[in-house]
Amino acid sequence: MSTVVVGFDGSEQARRAVLWGAEEAGRTGADLRVVHAVRAPLPEPVFTPMSVPVREFVSEETLSRAAEDELAGLARELRAARPDLRLETRVRVGRAADVLAGEPGDVLVLGSSGRTGIAGMVLGSTTAELVAAGGRPVVVTRTGPLDGRVVVGVDGSDISAEAIAHAFSYAERHGRQLLAVHAFNDAGWAELPEQDVDHVRADLAKLLDDQLAPHRSRHPGVHVAQEVAFNAPAHALLQAADGAALLVVGSHGRGAVKRAILGSTSHAVLHHAPCTVAVVHRR
């Protein structure tokens, strides 16, 4: 049985991620596990009437109890809306990125930033680290239309094929149209005669069609559109994602030691996409 894991910290972004995860679990028949990581913060100074600063400690036990209460309330809301949902909530002590990275599951769903995020930051540090870690698909939820199309970036690589498979499956489950985008960013194309550009475009369209063909046969009910863009991949994908419900991209995982590193396209998409983004890694 598959499991959708959602990271939760009480923020509005995390609540949005839980709702997205619940919808996905309901459609796929998966279990939903909501995980709240707690870690006692550094003590903060509290000033006494004599203006002598003393340190006030908040224990991990206190934080855990508060997290359990918050999750219990969230679970009641979810079960009231979805009585058949197989739901589990967990409180874990530790650094959020480490806790969630070690939580078993088939897909990880996160808010774009959390309760402790710095104002103005589009992507929280925990989310960025977990997206870059590799392994299972990571979904970063955002506000945006829920009934828009699905957009997937295609570049001919093995990981791109996995992203295509993920996008087709999601589009079929949700009854969405799919737009596959291949971006050609060779600076030399601008110097080519128009006739040669047309030939290049036709060749790339054929390559794109070949990459989509096996997925089309497995998902015949999905309506697919194709686009060859003479543009930087991130820019082409962000343009295509306008009005989309989900943008799917592939990314080569770099392992736990270097999991703070993201590729340039994934980095740009995650920080600027107007919709929810799914990052698919090589398994």
Rank of each mutant, 00 (worst) to 15 (best):
R55W: 15
L270F: 12
V99I: 04
Q195D: 14
Q195K: 08
A132G: 15
G26S: 06
E24N: 10
P104W: 03
P193F: 13
G29D: 04
V150M: 10
P214L: 04
P104Y: 05
A75Q: 02
H267A: 06
L87Q: 08
W20L: 03
R86T: 08
L238P: 11
M121I: 14
R282F: 06
H267F: 12
Q195V: 09
V5A: 08
L71G: 00
G73K: 02
R90A: 14
L178K: 01
R55H: 12
E103P: 13
K258Y: 08
A96M: 10
A187S: 15
F168C: 01
R16D: 11
S264L: 05
V154Y: 01
G105F: 13
L110H: 01
W189P: 03
T276M: 09
F8G: 07
Q226A: 09
G144M: 01
V99H: 06
A14Y: 02
A241C: 05
V248G: 09
K206L: 13
V38H: 05
P49Y: 14
R39A: 05
E191F: 14
I118K: 07
H182E: 05
L85I: 13
G243R: 06
G148M: 11
V34G: 14
L123K: 12
E44D: 01
G253P: 09
R176A: 10
L204I: 09
V277H: 02
G255P: 08
S157T: 15
R16Q: 13
K258G: 07
E162L: 15
D84C: 07
D196R: 15
S59N: 04
G111S: 09
D31G: 09
G148Q: 12
D196I: 14
G124E: 13
H272G: 12
G111W: 05
V152H: 02
S112M: 14
L100C: 07
D196W: 04
G134K: 09
A260P: 07
E194H: 11
G253W: 02
Q13R: 10
A163L: 03
A234D: 08
P104T: 11
V152Y: 08
V58K: 03
R33Q: 06
R149W: 13
L238H: 07
V257M: 04
P45A: 02
V4H: 03
H272T: 15
G111F: 08
M1P: 11
S264P: 09
S169Y: 00
S169K: 03
F184H: 15
S251C: 14
A14N: 01
A22I: 06
L78T: 11
S112D: 15
R76L: 12
A190Y: 14
E191A: 10
F57P: 00
C275P: 07
A97R: 12
L212A: 01
E60I: 07
S251D: 09
R90D: 06
R136S: 03
T116I: 10
T141P: 08
T28H: 01
V38I: 11
V280S: 12
V248Y: 02
G102R: 00
L85P: 10
F184A: 10
D198I: 03
V151I: 07
H272L: 12
E227D: 11
R173L: 00
